[in-house]
């Protein structure tokens, strides 16, 4: 009877670990597919592991793709102490750069921070290069005031990009 509590705790920890492993293997936690007339709509869930190297603020992005199109929409959110509308977003690796001008979705102020939600459009094949690259890209946001740089933990990027590579393969294969 004395060991009841440690046993229950152990069972709960084991079940928790098992359920997290179950979750980690599922590709559908990364994306959704909506079948509709005029082309399937794919949505890759927000990825929020990027952070600013200076002020530790975060950046997250999601990707929407309509089958049959050559390009995909990347919507992204970042926070700053002052309003800093983005004009250009870039993904950098040592040997590749992907850049596009941005379109504002909204800017708001909440909890002492300015929230910026913007959109950019990238070629499907260009995005494939970024996600197939073995180096975690840095994201740069160019504003009228300065350039903000965001980086990601390599392990988190590898796990994420591995899933996205598979999703892009699914999209490409079903497009043919």
């Amino acid at each position: 009877m004395k060991t009841t509590f440690p046993n229950i705790a152990l069972i709960l920890i084991l079940l928790g670990t098992w359920s997290m492993q179950l979750n980690a293997q599922k590709l559908d936690k990364y994306y959704m597919q909506h079948v509709q007339e005029g082309g399937d709509l794919f949505f890759i869930h927000p990825f929020n592991a990027y952070s600013n190297t200076n002020d530790k603020s975060s950046l997250e992005f999601d990707i929407t793709y309509l089958s049959g199109k050559d390009s995909a929409t990347l919507n992204f959110t970042y926070f700053a102490k002052d309003p800093k509308p983005a004009s250009i977003i870039s993904f950098h690796t040592d040997d590749y750069m992907l850049t596009d001008s941005t379109t504002k979705i909204y800017i708001d102020f909440n909890k002492k921070k300015w929230g910026h939600r913007f959109s950019a459009t990238f070629g499907f094949n260009e995005l494939k290069i970024i996600f197939n690259h073995n180096q975690a890209p840095t994201i740069s946001i160019e504003t009228d005031i300065d350039i903000m740089s965001y980086s990601v933990n390599s392990k988190k990027w590898l796990k994420y990009s591995d899933a996205i590579q598979k999703i892009l393969y699914i999209i490409e294969t079903n497009n043919k």
Partner: peptide, 23 residues
């Protein structure tokens, strides 16, 4: 109790077609 991972509907409208997704 141990693990939940479900998707379900909330609403459908009469509008046709989707090109955007928001969460």
């Amino acid at each position: 109790f141990i693990y939940t991972d479900v998707k379900a509907p909330i609403a459908v409208t009469g509008n046709t077609g989707s090109t955007k997704v928001g969460t």
